[in-house]
Simulated assay, not measured.
Amino acid sequence: MTDMAAETAPAPKPEDRAAQIAAAIAAQAQIPTSPDQLFARLAELGIATRTVDHDPVFTVEESRHLRGELPGAHIKNLFLRNRKEEMWLVTVEEERRIDLKALGQKLTGTTGGDAKLSFGSAERLMQYLGVVPGAVTPFAVINDKAGKVKMVLDRHLTEIDPVNAHPLVNYKSTAIAPADLVKFLEAEGHKPQILDLD
């Protein structure tokens, strides 16, 4: 359950990792919606989830080693933008390789310049989704009250139960049924575009 921008980052040295963890936890203490507030919203919607705590994870590789044996789909999340300032949060199965050029054409319906995608900055990520890099998650749409970010789900994820996602912080993982994830996204005004991303 990581964001793709961090997928290929080199593993930090042990002393650097301790500093990285401390900085991440401090940054995540400032997010606009806490995991407990998210869980309350899910309960309000009648959605059951299961959450486990683990060491903070920053890459797909770290996630595989530190999350433990969690059944179901594990994801990575791409926070993307184009030159027209359109933004997308794309959630895919963690093993899926994504061609950004082809994805841009799918998302914009064009082969023009507005189809070129780039990753959103950490500042933009916090501004629109209220999370820090490494904690990107479909649950973050709870913070996008203005509906500026379009939500995209890999169709493959709708066929695996449960889907595991960070609950706004990267030191917890929450398992949710795919139908309930869609229910949550719709309730937050972010009905997902479900795409075949093979």
Rank of each mutant, 00 (worst) to 15 (best):
T110Q: 11
F58H: 08
E69M: 13
P133G: 11
D180L: 08
G112V: 02
I47V: 14
A146R: 09
E62Y: 13
V57F: 11
A5D: 01
P138N: 02
G113T: 02
L168K: 02
G147T: 07
L157T: 12
P35I: 10
K191D: 01
A179K: 14
D36A: 15
K84D: 13
T137M: 00
K13M: 03
N170S: 01
P32N: 12
I98H: 14
M151H: 06
A6L: 15
L103Y: 11
E123S: 10
V60M: 09
Q105G: 13
D99V: 07
P71C: 04
T51F: 01
P133Q: 04
S121K: 07
D99E: 10
A29E: 13
E44Q: 12
H190Q: 03
I142G: 00
L78Q: 09
Q37R: 10
A73K: 06
N82Y: 03
A179W: 08
K172M: 12
A135S: 13
G72V: 01
L70S: 10
E95S: 15
V182T: 14
Q28I: 05
A40H: 12
A6D: 12
D3N: 15
E44Y: 01
P14G: 03
K145Y: 05
K145E: 10
K13H: 08
G46R: 13
Q20K: 14
A9G: 09
D36H: 06
T2N: 15
A19R: 15
V149Q: 01
V149C: 03
R96K: 14
Y128L: 13
L185G: 00
Q30P: 00
A140E: 00
E123D: 08
P14T: 10
G46H: 08
P178V: 06
R64A: 12
G109P: 02
T59C: 03
A48W: 06
E94V: 08
E85K: 15
M4E: 13
K150M: 01
S118W: 00
D198I: 12
D154H: 13
I194M: 14
R17F: 10
N164T: 04
A23P: 04
